[in-house]
Every structure is written in structure tokens, then in C-alpha cells.
Design a protein around this nucleic acid. Sequence first.
DNA 1: TGTAGGTATGAATCCGACT
DNA 2: AAGTCGGATTCATACCTAC
Lengths: 266, 266
Amino acid sequence: MSKQPRIINLVSPSNHQHLLLVGSCLDRAIVSALRETAEFSAVVTDPPYSSGATHSNGRKATPTSKYQQSGTARQYQDFLGDAMDQRSWARWSGEWLSEVRGLCGPGAYSMIFSDWRQLPAITDAMQWANWTWRGVAVWDKTEGARAPNKAYFRHQAEFVAWGTNGRLPPSFEKGRPTAPGVFRSSIDSKKIHLCQKPISVMGWLLSLLPQEAEWVLDPFAGSGSTILAADEAGLSCAAVEEHEAIADQAIERLLGKGFQVISRAA
Amino acid sequence: MSKQPRIINLVSPSNHQHLLLVGSCLDRAIVSALRETAEFSAVVTDPPYSSGATHSNGRKATPTSKYQQSGTARQYQDFLGDAMDQRSWARWSGEWLSEVRGLCGPGAYSMIFSDWRQLPAITDAMQWANWTWRGVAVWDKTEGARAPNKAYFRHQAEFVAWGTNGRLPPSFEKGRPTAPGVFRSSIDSKKIHLCQKPISVMGWLLSLLPQEAEWVLDPFAGSGSTILAADEAGLSCAAVEEHEAIADQAIERLLGKGFQVISRAA
DNA sequence: TGTAGGTATGAATCCGACT
DNA sequence: AAGTCGGATTCATACCTAC
């Protein structure tokens, strides 16, 4: 990993600052750049799942061939970190969860997407990394999910393991609505990333944050949905993406929404 | 445990046979009575969760003091098996899951309710007991259920870890609709058991079974919702309940629905 | 039969006081 | 000091009663 990571400084039409860092969230230079940025109020992210490994060729396949149905025209960039076995994945998850917790203030939230298969591993990893695990929220993808088999319940949900860095954040406004534990939203039909989350889903997660929250961290940025949702919620977001080509796609998406690049380092 | 467990033989208005066995599903006499009954097509159950909060209430002895909000007037029977720590609970779950698998035919389903906290433990236990874990279905209790904390996502879902005894059941009818992975249904307002599941929810689970299925097993019967749902689905159900008083409440409920006792053993 | 208003409820959770 | 106990909190919903 380079000593001087590529860092793109962005400003949104509504005048919030955001950061895109190209590299690994476990890289020392990235971590110190993040530490200089802010004390984060939340980690909201969708890590690579490394799932689907009942058969060995499921594990060997690249993500796009594994997760896309045959005949799908759209091509996605393969993303990194998806070929580990489950134990390595849990261990690796514990490491980045621990690393990002060090960048968070007390009472900060972590909200980590997971499919059903990795849910036990991610909740273990959260606890190893000293987050207080507090629940599992559900994104119901509704009709968009396909059934592999009539003998199956449709895998139409994704899960969000969530917790806090120690005690809960102290202050909450009166009259604030409570956040639902199940959120229904179909998958975006126009995606630039295989696992792209709808902005409404990311917005639902961010709705839990207290009013004082300022900065949100997404160590696996992908197409940048967290940045867009954070911006809508009046928050700033630092997003890390390891894959150059995916980071470029994210920047393109943000520029298309009227974001402007203020500076690039390295 | 007695050598001669109490066994109640019931017949429903639609003329299906059901069995209620009073005792533990790990008791030898109960297990051999079940073995003589049938080869089961599914295990559908809602075991005691032995769950609880991060704080002191979690260690309180009785389910009603743990799981009911303070200040509620409604009274329920406390049930057994809810005071284990997490390691014992996982181990115990593995044992009964293994025991009941021995009573099932190839391709039989297991569908086990869990709250968010025990979900990783129950999926581990399923796998230890040699069930093939195939997914997590979600019962969305809708807006009605809530924990009064604004810093929380509402704990409005219960989860169903499900799998099969080896390969999937072979034959499925053409044109059969697929079963949803998320099912919305509010809690029954008139419950006789603290954890009573709506019959519609149990019916959703049973809708996955192949047409040839005949007998369903519920090792933690509680108020007998599985029996009622099985009867509606044209299945027979053998239900085991350890707590005498709760078994009596279940019988009363079934008699109220027009079920008749044909015979009682012991 | 329909509508409006009142009330009890939730497989909790937190905090602080007490032993 | 660590463990235990008691009471406050929360709001959308379903159900009941009154009209």
C-alpha cells in the first residue's frame, strides 16, 4: 500500500464536505488521514461478504460470476476481499472493526450489512472488536429478491448488525420518531455496483444518529451511497475504497449529482 | 422424568389427529413415543430463548420479569428453560436439535424461532446437530412492537433459522408459489402465553412443506399454535410441552376450538 | 353500522439506589 | 465493589366503549 494514499476532497451542492480515500481501511496512512479528519459518530458500511461457499467453485469464482444470474447484461467491477473462507473473513472483520472503532467517539454507532450466512460471523467480529452489539435490523428487499428453489424461503432480506462504542449516545430530542427495525425498499434497478444499496436504506440507518453527529465513516465505500445519504442527512462522510476503478466510478457518480472536487492529494 | 409420560391424543373438527406429550423432548420415554408415532417432515418450534438484556434484568430468574415491561397488568405463566447462560443454551439447543433430527425423515425441515441475540447461537447449534442450515426468515411484528428507546432500532422482528435434514425434499408441485422470506403480522392481542405466535405466522412456515408431508413435530409446544396451524394446513402435529400448567392451557385452547380428546395415556 | 376517543400493550432497556 | 433490584420510559397499534 502506498505511503501517500489518494485522497479526494469533495463538497456537495448543499455545501457539506466529504472525503474519498483510495486504499485499504487497514492501511496505516489511510487510518492516520482519517484520524486527522474527525472523531466519527458512526461507521456505516457494507463489507464484501465472502459468501456463497457451500461448493468450492463458489468460493473460487469472482464475485460478479458468483452473484450475477446468467444472462445479466450489466457488468460489475469485481470487488476485493471476497474469496476468503469464513474463519479468515471473521478474523479480518474483527480487525477492521477494531481499527475503525479507534476512530470513533464514545457512543458512536456501527451498522454493518450482512447476508444471512455471515451474520453470526459479523456479530462475533463486532464483539471481538469491543463494540457493544445491540441488535439486528432488517432490510426487506421485497419483490426484488428471487427464489433459488421452491423448497426455499426467498432470501429477500439483508441484515444490519448494529451496536455502539460503549454506552449509548446520551442526548436524544423529544418527539423524535423511533427508527423502525425492519425497512422495506426494493433494490435500485440502475446500479453501478453489484451490491449498491439504495440511498433510502442508508438514510434509514443514518436516521438513528443523534443531532450532534457530524462525521460518518464508510470503510467500504463502493458506489458511494453512504456519502449521498450522509449528505442528504446533513452529515459529512469519509469513505474508503480500495479498488481504484470503483473509486473512480463513485467520483463520477458524485460529480453527476453536482458534487465538486476541491482538492486531490497524492 | 416419569417413565410413563402423559400423552393426550386429540382429533380436530377437520378430523386430523394430533398428539400432546407432557414432558421434556430430551426424555427417553417421550422420544420413543414420538418415534412410534411417525417419521416427521418438519420440526417447527419456538424454544425458550434464555435471552435478556445486557444489564441486570437479563439475569433475573423468570421470563415474565425479564421480558415484560414493568407496569403491565397482564399475567402469564412463567415457562421453563429460560435461565441458561449462553454457552449452556447453545449446547442444550444442539442436543435437542440432534435428538429431534433423529425422528425426522430425509429432507425434513427445521424452523426454529430466535430473537436477535440468540441467532448466532441457534445457527451454530443447528449445524452441530447436523442440520443443513439454509437461511434466516424474518417475522416482522410491524409497528406494534417496540422497545422504548430512541437510540435503538425497534426490536420488531423475530427470526426463524431454518434448514433441512440433508438434501432438500425432492418433489415440488408445479405452479406452487414461493414462500416469502419476510412475513408481516402483528402480535396477537389476546395471548394465553407470553411468547404465543400468531397462527398465521406458523402457517407461513408450514406453507413451505411439500404436499406429501404428514407429521410435524413441535418440541416446545407452549400454547399450541403449531398444532392449530398444522391442522389448518391438513397436517398432523406431535407437540411436546414440559410445563404441566402450560400444557393444560393448551388443551383448554384446543377444546375451545372444537378439538376432542380421544385418549389419555398415563 | 360507523366513527371517535380512551386505554392497555410490547420475548425491553436504562439508570440509580440498595445490599 | 460487584451484584441485585425497582421504577421510569416510549409510541404505534389494536381493541374497547361511547355516541
